[in-house]
Amino acid sequence: MFASCADPSTIEGLHWLACYLTSGKHMAFYASFGTVMLLLAITAPAALAFGFAGAMATRSRLWPVQWLGRGYTAMVRGVPDIIFFLFVPIALDQALEWVRHKTICPDWTEPVRRGSDFVVCAQAKLPLSTSPQWVHDTYGFALAVTAFAVVFGAFAANVLHGAMRAVPRAQIETAEAYGMTHGQAFWRILVPQMWIYALPGLSNLWMILIKATPLLFLLGVQDIVYWARELGGAKTSIYAYPHPDWRIYYFLGLLVFYLGLTKISEVVLGRLNARLSHGQATLAGEAQRKATA
């Protein structure tokens, strides 16, 4: 980083620390905070979309769709989310490769599963073994995001389904009295009103999502936990910056990062809640009305 850092063995004290904290690996460590933020930024809307689809399926009048929706919302109740985090990426990867294998190499007669191996033809591999490293990284990250979106979509479907049922029945009846169709009443009356009922649940879900992000480490993504372990481990003098086992300080740093993130989220969500409660027929809305009156 700095020119004076060229030979770390000659420098000492604060200068050493400044050089140490700006080394190339530390830059990768700082960038991995961006990975976490990116995961949050992609997963939150994706999970909301999954959840909305799930909640709509649960309300469907076609029983196969309804069953599918119910099964999806029920699956996170009994099974730990970490099992899905381990299961979804590898299952999805194998499913994709299998489909590609069947379409690209139809004349391949040997079975795909042979004992403890899963073999598809070279052209069906995902990503192709010839593709550059960043494609592999992106593919792994995309699988991780999908796993998160599926699990948190199921949580969100629970919340949204409850919120849809919480909208007063009279609102829908009024819409129907005005001659709106089922779909119109849903999109124009129910959906705009349900958010205030969904917000407490969704805020809670956001907090859980934040706290689930270190699990990226288990999916093989080079995230902040990976780098904290990597950088914190004891370094002998063959390294440019030898130091004893400092992992505890790195993890303390991560702890502070997460505490800050939840604190900021709490404040922002509190404000959002106050804003959405404005003029609503809920306890919070009523309290606001009394306070200003």
Partner: peptide, 22 residues
Amino acid sequence: IFLFRGSPLFIQFFLAYEAFVL
């Protein structure tokens, strides 16, 4: 309450383990 509810359990495990090792 804030410390244990505001941070991921995963990080708490890591931190505790490193602390115990030290």
